[in-house]
Write a protein that binds this DNA or RNA. Structure first.
Lengths: 250, 250
DNA sequence: TTAATTATGATTAAATTTGATCGAATTAAA
DNA sequence: TTTAATTCGATCAAATTTAATCATAATTAA
């Protein structure tokens, strides 16, 4: 059994089970554990898999969770409900912007089979939609590793070249007074997308409603539709500012 | 039994079983193992099969899992030697272009600790350099999932905005007549980068030298330096065209 | 026919691959 | 935190495969 055959077999097993153990592989393939270990080391160096103690994992299984491991856990069900509702408004042939951030990321699972074009600056979204029916336009510019997104002047200009029917945006906080962001980068990106869009959707789980953070970057005028699981009275203030509310239940 | 007849038989056997062994072939065809080995070496050089220890495999079986990742396995050591030499020319503060493709990707490991700016259209490179000392500028445009890269008009314009000291490029084939690419996307990307660069480095392992593919996209005038492990006489022709040769040993 | 080129086979040194062993590093448990 | 158990990486030795060299046979060209 040559290295190539073993590599093939290992990848096959990884594809189905997501992770493998060295002892498992050694007996299943019929070589020593040392050899399996060598195979895994070499394959990991080539980016074919992710090495763990005592075995290996699929690359995709390890890259995705890492990028959003912490944030994505919070209010996951609410975010999914919000994104499911958002996806209902996306129809075949649409060109849409999707913001970076953990909420907008959850939209991916609901649009995978739609024949649409997505313009985004989020690397996890690109990863997620890569082998789907969706055509992806990635915004260029400086890569911000901590946010897993692309930002900067070039990104701005890039967005300015495009026009989309809908934009799905996220913020750090929203009150009747305006929109709050966690960083200037995120703020300017959100604004740039909104400026090039016919209809903007703000995706906010209940924790964002009424919350302020250090940077208030705009009033509510750029928001057309707010999708949220929040049921309190504050939503009336948004409606009075001309925002349509899509209320979802978790 | 002529070489052509043997080659035909070997391909036939490969087609049905997916893999062959040298001893097997020697008895089945009725020639010595030395001859079979020679046949396989020659056929592998022409891309008809994939050479393994003690035999050969069908190309498609080797490439199946992930096209990019498996390409990277071919001539890995040569590519690493080439990229190591290339990295020696990269100094702190440099702004460099890096092409997409399996060869240029290997450059990442040697530049992780350098304080430089990398402009690239390759998603694997972004992933690899994400949490390193390198500042990354990602070229925007249409995402080509099969090549794991960004292409198109927007990408072109993006490249045109920048100017870099060095560009590290790859091609599918190179002869004294010119450069050959596997697709128009790759060709136009390579050209665009070369146009914005002071000094272009072409990274070519031996299998690329003298090889042509369906699209000849430019003459050699855009190449300043060729780094390769190829030792044959063809390199003199490149030198006479004004290209500096950096020869590496695997 | 003869000379020159090419293809094949045998031989041998170099390179790969594999498995075993052992100290170091990592993880899990107490 | 300390201890015990795995796992890892490095090094070495054995077996196999490969590449290089040379001699011989077959083919081609003059």
């Amino acid at each position: 059994m040559t290295f190539q055959k073993r590599a093939h077999k290992i990848l096959e097993l990884l594809e189905t089970s997501g992770e493998v153990e060295i002892r498992q592989l050694a007996t299943k393939i019929g070589v020593s554990e040392v050899t399996v270990r060598r195979d895994l080391t070499s394959m990991a160096a080539n980016g074919l898999l992710y090495r763990t103690h005592g075995g290996a994992m699929k690359i995709s299984d390890v890259i995705k969770p890492v990028s959003f491991a912490n944030k994505a856990e919070v209010n996951l069900k609410a975010k999914d409900a919000i994104c499911k509702r958002a996806a209902e408004d996306i129809v075949e042939g649409d060109v849409i912007f999707i913001d970076c951030g953990s909420t907008a990321f959850r939209l991916c699972q609901f649009i995978k089979d739609k024949k649409i074009k997505v313009i985004t600056n989020s690397l996890p979204i690109v990863n997620e939609l890569q082998h789907s029916a969706v055509t992806i336009n990635l915004i260029g510019g400086e890569v911000d590793a901590s946010r897993q997104a692309v930002h900067g002047t070039m990104a701005h200009e890039h967005i300015g070249r495009y026009q989309a029917a809908k934009a799905f945006l996220g913020v750090d906080g929203i009150t009747a007074e305006g929109l709050y962001a966690g960083s200037e980068y995120e703020a300017s990106n959100t604004l740039a997308m909104a400026a090039q869009t016919g209809c903007t959707y703000m995706l906010c789980d209940a924790s964002k409603i009424g919350k302020t953070s250090y940077l208030k970057f705009n009033d509510l005028s750029i928001v057309n539709i707010l999708i949220t699981d929040y049921k309190g009275p504050e939503v009336n203030k948004f409606e009075s500012k001309g925002i349509s509310i899509y209320s979802v239940t978790v």
